[in-house]
Amino acid sequence: MRSIRMAMVILWLTLTLTVALGSSVLKNKVQILERRLTSINTNIQKDIESIHVLKAEWSHYNTPERLRTLAQNQLALENAKPEQIINYSALQFNYEDSHTSNSRVNHKGLTTLVKAVKR
């Protein structure tokens, strides 16, 4: 009887100690994770704020007026004129076919046209 009682006490003590130790380790780990989480949250919040400011800045740098000035200075492009927008049927090759079949011949026609327009 005594040995059983002893065994029971040891079992209970072992279990209690294990739970206590485990809880302590767990609490410590949770605290570390919580600190990490807070830090991550703060960083995310800061990043959201930075992205918001950057978006405003992006919008400021992309005003049509500024882009036009840059385009005029840096690119040889102009506004599309109505007569430059043409029907497929006005092309010298079948655009629909060239678009689907990847035929070299048809693409050659398209390349020629693009070059001609660029000139």
């Binding site: 007569e83 043409i86 029907n87 006005a90 046209l113 001609a116």
Partner: peptide, 20 residues
């Protein structure tokens, strides 16, 4: 907005572009 040009006129524009 789709421009409604005469198809013959458009062809002449494209041909002119090719000739260049």
């Amino acid at each position: 907005v789709k421009a409604d040009f005469d198809i013959e006129k458009q062809k002449s524009i494209v041909n002119a572009a090719y000739k260049k």
